[in-house]
Design a protein around this nucleic acid. Sequence first.
DNA 1: TTGAAAGCGCTAACAC
DNA 2: GTGTTAGCGCTTTCAA
Lengths: 344, 344
Amino acid sequence: MATLYDVAKLARVSPKTVSRVLNESHLVAEETRQRVLAAIEKLDYHPNAIAASLKRNRANKIGFIIPYGSDFVFQDPNMMEQLRGTHDYVSMVGFELIISAPLHKKDALQEALRLTKNRNVDGVILYPSNGIDQIIKEFRAKNLRYVTLGICYDQQKNNFVEVDQTPGCYLATKYLLSLGHRRIGLLNKPYSFFMFSRDDLLNGYVRALHEAGIEYLPSLVREGNFTFEDGYEKFRSLKEEHPDLTAVICASDPMTYGTIRAIADMGLKTDEIQVVAGDNLPLTQKLFPQLSSITNPSYEQGKQAGKMIVNIINEGTEIPGVTLNTEFVVRNMQAINHRENIIV
Amino acid sequence: MATLYDVAKLARVSPKTVSRVLNESHLVAEETRQRVLAAIEKLDYHPNAIAASLKRNRANKIGFIIPYGSDFVFQDPNMMEQLRGTHDYVSMVGFELIISAPLHKKDALQEALRLTKNRNVDGVILYPSNGIDQIIKEFRAKNLRYVTLGICYDQQKNNFVEVDQTPGCYLATKYLLSLGHRRIGLLNKPYSFFMFSRDDLLNGYVRALHEAGIEYLPSLVREGNFTFEDGYEKFRSLKEEHPDLTAVICASDPMTYGTIRAIADMGLKTDEIQVVAGDNLPLTQKLFPQLSSITNPSYEQGKQAGKMIVNIINEGTEIPGVTLNTEFVVRNMQAINHRENIIV
DNA sequence: TTGAAAGCGCTAACAC
DNA sequence: GTGTTAGCGCTTTCAA
């Protein structure tokens, strides 16, 4: 493999000039530049990124750390959307994306530290999981770069991109109330698994109920792990405990699928239970085009996190956190009630 | 950040001894080793991976290159399964995984070359897409490391991990024939988009028909891009052209979803069309537990590809290609025909 | 506008 | 079992 010195020799210039052509080419005489470029072409020279990294003390890599054990990971569609957003942004500005999903959740944060201290990456994007407040303390103490996908502790002011689901859930609840529903379930997100600093879905739900003068029954709310299985189980137990349940709001699309499956398995008809989806993912829209949905800007969240980590790396300072909003999308419900088609 | 020299100084040994403790610690006296480890601990020393890479001429990174433009990518569940398999293997043996999904498909292969020549990665995993035969030629000429997820040209003998869907599709077709179906559609995989070297699904399909003495009608076969949309469109046109169609085999699970949606939208009942899924993904099993399915060992394929690229990097030679098999899973069909529940 | 020389942090020969 | 030294391929003062 040709090195920069080979190019310099062939072009009869110094190594530094080649380096200049590679990086800050406007400081080089055009004629010299052409000679260098020709030599590069001729030798099929590709700069050794590792050597440049060593000298610059910059890996040009971002780590995306997933704390769930890898079989959850690559199957959770929201995480994929966040990953995609991050990928698209950081690759646009010249960073590579390293993904790491330690097999054991507890190793994830250590892995994040290792990657960063090793200089394998210039900064990491982290999910809020248990123990992350300690890890953030260490990142800050050592002046390492990180961004979190959510607020990880009460006083966190910087370096996060979070989504506030309060508005989406408020609108969803209000909509269901306006249709006449009075027993509305909420399959909420987990508070043991992740480390969320506030209960936004619940807040929106309770506020809408309160405004309508409807009593809030805690037993109508169940926490789940965002997964299909949890959607399935929690819906079943919810409906069994509340036979008069007529509507349910799901915290995620996989939970929505589980709920739909549970509805079918329980022998309920579509118009007995109205389901609101949690993420508004493309697949959900295609599979179940009648479902109204809370929107979850996962792609945007990942993208903003990518942008933030790149800025933090370049500026060398912390950056105030960003909160993204949610909305609610109504889809045509008439279609459901008159549909007699059976899907599978 | 502490360097190896700082550790050496604190432990009162030479840099090389520290390096030995880090890498080949059995060659160091236990007492010395403990002193070094104590110094490492005390300084919170983390070896600079970039410096080691430069010296060793080894990045310890694998590139996973996705050639579809990133919005296809992180949404195709099979690709995610392959990625997961690769991730799990390579991270187990100490490699980092870099994923790259150039926004334009045509850039993907150049990106693969760039990453490798730059030394950003030690080797790449590639999908068979148009023009890949040329790229492979260049990889081989320059002695660069690659593995392909499928056979990319007729004479390819090495460095691939492919899946042969002939058996799975043969069994699926045979099964449908045994149930009395005579007009069986095949929503086949694409041949313009990827670069597959053989038409395995079609082979299995035709063989089963032939053995049963049933005529093979080319118009019962449609190519699709593995996507929901293609499943939807192709099924519609298939059924419109062949009103006597009673069963269909889908090349992928997203196509299966599209087909199911089309069936619902066309006002057909479940027992009028029997659908065979293409991948047997967990989500499909959960959403549509009644569907029989061809199995697609995507995770295993990704894992094997990871294993192969690591071996190729370590051995420095090419490795004979591997072909993975497919099967067919029958699920309880009675449940379908008697089910009157409506899913959404 | 260009070049000479030092050095990023580690590892590999080769000595002892 | 341990140390000395050179050098991976680049960038960066500093000088010309």
